[in-house]
Each structure stands twice: as structure tokens, then as C-alpha cells.
Design a protein around this nucleic acid. Sequence first.
DNA 1: CCGGTTGTGAGACGTATGTCGAAGAGGTGC
DNA 2: GCACCTCTTCGACATACGTCTCACAACCGG
Lengths: 132, 132
Amino acid sequence: MPTSLTYVKEVAQTGRMPKALPVLDTTAPVCCAPVASAAMTEDAAIEVALRLKALADPARLRLMSLLLTRDEVCTCDLAPVLGLSEATVSHHLGQLRRAGLVQGERRGMNVWYRARRESLGALVRVLDPDCC
Amino acid sequence: MPTSLTYVKEVAQTGRMPKALPVLDTTAPVCCAPVASAAMTEDAAIEVALRLKALADPARLRLMSLLLTRDEVCTCDLAPVLGLSEATVSHHLGQLRRAGLVQGERRGMNVWYRARRESLGALVRVLDPDCC
DNA sequence: CCGGTTGTGAGACGTATGTCGAAGAGGTGC
DNA sequence: GCACCTCTTCGACATACGTCTCACAACCGG
């Protein structure tokens, strides 16, 4: 995952965090040692933080919850439930999609989203203090 | 947890999220139904999101990881490891402390921090898609 | 009491985030 | 082709966040 390295380098050079979300592929389930197993490296931390940021918002948590309980949901149904504009919901779904936590598929005029349980599961396993 | 309700009300009235972190006690381990068990309510989502936000930062993940692996660490040792100023590390530890994920105890001139595994465990259980 | 050390708080600064309305892209059906 | 519907992208705006420096609080050793 080369982009991660350039990000780390940028941090080292400027001494600051640049943009919050470095542009790197986070669609695959996170894969690194559990947080409690050993001191985390900088880029492992970034890998996990990117996915956590995607989840750390009430609207997105509710979206994930809806998708997890309902198997497949059309975007148009979500905005009313959350009380947000369609644009905002689309924005949140995009965040979740880029984090690999959901996937959407266009069928006709609608886009159907479903949760990627394995991605959420991988994230949870990394964070579990009792795992490994 | 009364503050949570006022927050929800404010959201309902203004139609917007106010400050990202409503002032409410998050030091106790999160306690709500698993995200996959049923559609999450607004304030359950806020409860979880507050704790996730506290975790969703590379520096804080590394701090948690260090504390989880080393049982007890003095603040002064952390800044060099993370390559951040002491003030910044203190800021991050404060975030984690307010989220109930760590606890600090002053002994002499130093403050010793330790991870609260049960809080992280509770958070992980809520998020686990395979739980319940 | 006073200098020295460690940790937190306050203020400032640049950037990211969440939200919306409006415009565009993708698709249907006539 | 054209009107229409659904979803995403764009631009703008207010606010939150991460970082620093500097100042203060807590504590020790004389």
C-alpha cells in the first residue's frame, strides 16, 4: 500500500498530520496485528484510524446499523429515516464505501447498499483487547 | 444520562449536529444493543460515536496500543515515542480519558496511565457484526 | 519558601468535517 | 429525443479537530 508510506513520510517531514484522510485504498478489510498484541506502528495506526473515522459519526453508525439489520437497502429509503438530505446521506455512504464497510450496486434507477460484515468484523478483531 | 437528550433535542430543533462532542459523561463503558441487532436509535449512535471519535486518530490508537501492551505508562515516556509535543500527547490522553478508554493516576510528579480494557471491550462488542 | 520538573489548560492557527442547495450523471419510459 | 426519477458531485458555509507555544498548576527536594 504505497500511498500510506508517502503519507507517513509527509508527516515526518512537515511534523504535522496533513489532510485527515490520506488517499489510500481502504476498501479491503483492515489487516494488521491486534491493537493489544504489540505497540502499533504509525502506518498500522493510520490504516485503522481511517476506518474508524469512517464509522465514528452518528449518522454513519445508524446507516451501518440499518444495513446490518436489513440486508439490502435502497438509498432513497435512508434519507427520511435519518432526517438528513439525500446529498448528505450519499456523502456518508460514500465515506463508508471508501472505507470498505459497505458496498453499493446500481440496479435500474436505484442503488442498493449492503454492509460488508467481514470488513467490520476485521476492524473489530483488530480492536478487541481480549483477542490474541 | 440527561445531557444526551438535550443534545438530541438540539439536533431536532436546529436540524444540524451541534458541536461534535456533546458534553456528556462517556467515562463508563458504552452500554447499548449491538449495532447489528436492531436499527440504532439516534442517541445510541451518539453514545457509540463519541467513543469511536476518541479512538479514531492514529496518535490515540498508538497510545491505546502502548497502554494495552505495557500495563502502565508515565506520560513523559509517551511524547518521544509518538514524536509529538507533550501538550499534544496530554490532549490526546484527555480525549481517551473523557471517553473512558484510559485512566490516569498521579503519583508524585508523574501521571501514570493505564488502559481500561473493559471499556474498549464493551465498545468492540457493540460493533461486532457477529455478536448477538 | 523557592527553584526545578512534569502534566494540563488556554489561545491561536490551519485543515478537515458535516451539512445543505444546486447542478450534473445515470437510468427509465414514453 | 425528452421529460422524469434517483443518486452523486460541487461549491459554500459553519464548526470541530489536531497541533503547537506559552503559561499555569501540582508536586518534589532542598
